[in-house]
């Protein structure tokens, strides 16, 4: 396997992160510390601000206030490509691949991010292509290498998206609903992949609605409600927390 595990898990935390859209406070004063080297899950009812929080951390949205710190470095308001380069990879809620590019080309996007002077170096080198193929084998879609991504099934696109993120060797991977819209067999496969990648030392941050997956997979669960974390702990602790039951069931 050509994927090299990062040397040490790096910490990711937010302090007082806030983002409003008009009068709607999507995320307010969210202070969250993710456990490095662990699988962290972010759960909460619909509209509790999970995806907005996610987008603030990865730079897709500029937060109104607060800060994001990655391994002691302030990455707040950095453009998304610099956050990606710093080592945070992400997937999207509705799986996004490059539809009119082949599976192999999709894989190579993450390593096309060279600095300007490297642009002139020309074509992708054989090591990159070997690495891409090895990752495709790992997620099980290597036989589709020359297929345009739009011709893949939704499940295969999910696997391609994950493999594409891995091409950039991120040590922290943020997945937005990895189980959304895929069949149970594939959910199991994605779960296994996440566990394997975590065992290699990568930190995960997973937004997910599938409670079976969250409870079986994660080491640390953070519960969001109305834009801020209301509880956190191991899956067992969180499941029996009355505030969590209230947020979900409204009792």
């Amino acid at each position: 396997m050509t994927t090299t595990a990062p040397p040490a898990a790096r910490s990711l935390e937010t302090v007082g992160l806030t983002k409003s859209f008009g009068g709607v406070h999507a995320v307010r004063d969210a202070t969250v510390t993710f456990q490095p080297g662990k699988i962290n899950a972010l759960i909460g009812p619909n509209g509790s601000g999970k995806t907005t929080f996610f987008n603030c951390v990865t730079g897709m949205i500029k937060p109104d206030a607060g800060s994001v710190t990655f391994h002691g470095e302030d990455i707040t308001r950095r453009p998304p490509h610099r956050i990606a380069r710093a080592g945070i990879g992400r997937s999207f809620q509705l799986c996004r691949v490059f539809p009119r590019m082949t599976v192999l080309e999709n894989m190579l996007v993450a390593v096309s991010r060279s600095r300007f002077r490297e642009l002139l170096k020309g074509a992708h080198n054989p090591e990159e292509i070997d690495k891409a193929r090895a990752l495709l084998v790992r997620v099980g879609i290597d036989h589709l290498e020359n297929t345009e991504a739009r011709n893949l099934s939704y499940g295969q696109q999910k696997l391609l998206e994950l493999a594409g993120v891995l091409m950039g060797d991120p040590d922290t991977i943020m997945l937005d609903e990895p189980a959304g819209g895929v069949n149970p067999a594939l959910i199991g496969r994605i779960g296994t992949l996440v566990q394997e990648l975590n065992a290699e030392g990568r930190t995960f941050l997973v937004v997910e609605h599938n409670m079976d997956m969250v409870m079986s997979l994660s080491h640390h669960v953070i519960v969001f409600d109305r834009g801020r974390p209301i509880a956190e702990g191991t899956p067992d602790v969180v499941q029996s927390d009355p505030r969590v039951l209230e947020a979900y069931l409204g009792v």
Binding site: H81, A84, R96, F98, R100, H124
Partner: peptide
């Protein structure tokens, strides 16, 4: 070239390309 791969990724999905580290 790798530059070309990045440009085509912009054509397909600019935000996604940026999230993968393409400036």
């Amino acid at each position: 070239s790798r530059f070309g791969t990045g440009l085509k990724a912009v054509r397909e999905d600019e935000d996604k390309a940026q999230a993968l580290g393409v400036p």
